[in-house]
Simulated assay, not measured.
Amino acid sequence: MRRFISIFMLSSALLLPAGPGFAQESTPTPEEGITVQGFLLNRTTGEPGPEGIEVMLHAWDESGTARGMVHSVSGSRGEFIIEGVTVEKGLFYAVMAVYQGVTNLSETFVADENGRLPEIEVPIYETTTDTKNINIDLLHLVIGTGQGGLTVAEYYALSNQGDRTVVNSGALEQGRKDTLVFTLPPHAANISFPSANPKRYRVFPGGFVDTNGITPGVGTSQIVLTYVIPYEDSLTLTRLIPFDINEIKVFIPHQLGLQIEVPESNDQGVEILGSNLEAYDVYNLGPLQQGSQFETIVTGTLPSLSSDSQGTSTVRDKTGTWILLGVSILGMALIIGGLWWWRRVEEIGDEEVLGPEDTLVEN
């Protein structure tokens, strides 16, 4: 079953309304709806989930438009019953639950030919502050041009090979909500985390902190960030590897005419990528171990604005375009919970959550 939803579906989910059922124009289920049953299972201990945990059944269509949300609460053995659910063929359904301050997501399902959903298991996990089981499956680095120099978009897909959710590693300061720490290049400016809850990340001089918990599994956490680096005819972009990484791909638009060198990489040549079918020079390297680094050396003069015979700009500031293309280049779905569900946790939780104004300055 599909567990992942694209970032475009994720953007729609940010506007998800709550309601007693899923409002549909037509549905194969009775007017009163169906009953969806499921259970929480603690995958760390093997025991049923606890009583009193709020669960929410969500639905999306193929375009990523949110179609509704229905609440329930787990019983004494972790079981839950959600009544009055209307389902429709072609919609995707998943159940989420918050346990120990961390979002947990079921598999994603579609209704069967009778308009029914199966019994749904929502895995939950105990927590740990140990990051030894974290690794990066994939890093995509997309370089473009924008106001002030080169734009860089980075996309991380992270996995947790353990059986506990990694939270609050205390990597920078005890008592602060810090899970993972990443470095940033010197002089990186206009640092942004597109579509993310602003409370998820904290930027400090030379890096940023991800406060999101990472549940066990492959690709259970993703990070998307962009920044601008000043550029004058040459630049060596050095990136430190915070965890073992399986694969790195570097992309740069071919039309820029810049010279790129990525030491120890395989030059994949020119590939046509993205919804706009733009040509990119692609470089591939990895695996690399935690603590190592790789360089992307860029040389050449940035193209200036010019116009064709119709006065249309042929080379222009395409920061936003290349960032969006980078998302499509990523080629893998971003999990719903990482960005959207942390907003829900922060709204209902009692624990203080640090926002972007809580900037950490190293001593």
Rank of each mutant, 00 (worst) to 15 (best):
F80G: 03
I223F: 01
T236I: 12
P216N: 08
V36W: 03
T129R: 09
G49F: 06
P287W: 14
K318R: 10
L141T: 15
G311I: 02
A189M: 07
L16W: 06
W340G: 05
P28A: 02
G331D: 05
G101Q: 06
F193C: 11
S169D: 09
H71A: 09
F182I: 00
V122T: 13
S306Y: 01
Y155W: 07
I53P: 06
I34N: 00
S72L: 09
E352Y: 14
F208T: 01
G90C: 04
V167D: 09
S195W: 07
P216W: 08
V166M: 07
F251P: 02
D233N: 11
L150E: 06
S72N: 13
V282T: 02
Y283A: 07
K177I: 09
P205A: 01
T128M: 08
S307F: 02
P17I: 04
S106C: 10
E126N: 10
G291N: 06
H71M: 14
D137F: 01
E247F: 08
L288W: 01
N135F: 15
D267S: 11
K132W: 02
I136P: 08
T296A: 13
T27A: 05
L273A: 08
G219A: 07
R67V: 06
Q259T: 12
A157C: 06
P263W: 05
E54F: 12
D267N: 14
D210C: 12
N114Q: 11
I191Y: 09
P263F: 02
E357S: 10
K249N: 14
Q268T: 08
N197D: 14
L158T: 05
E362A: 11
T127R: 05
P30Y: 03
G286V: 11
F4H: 06
H187D: 14
A66F: 01
T183V: 00
V327T: 11
T321K: 10
L105P: 04
E88P: 00
L273E: 06
L273I: 05
G311E: 02
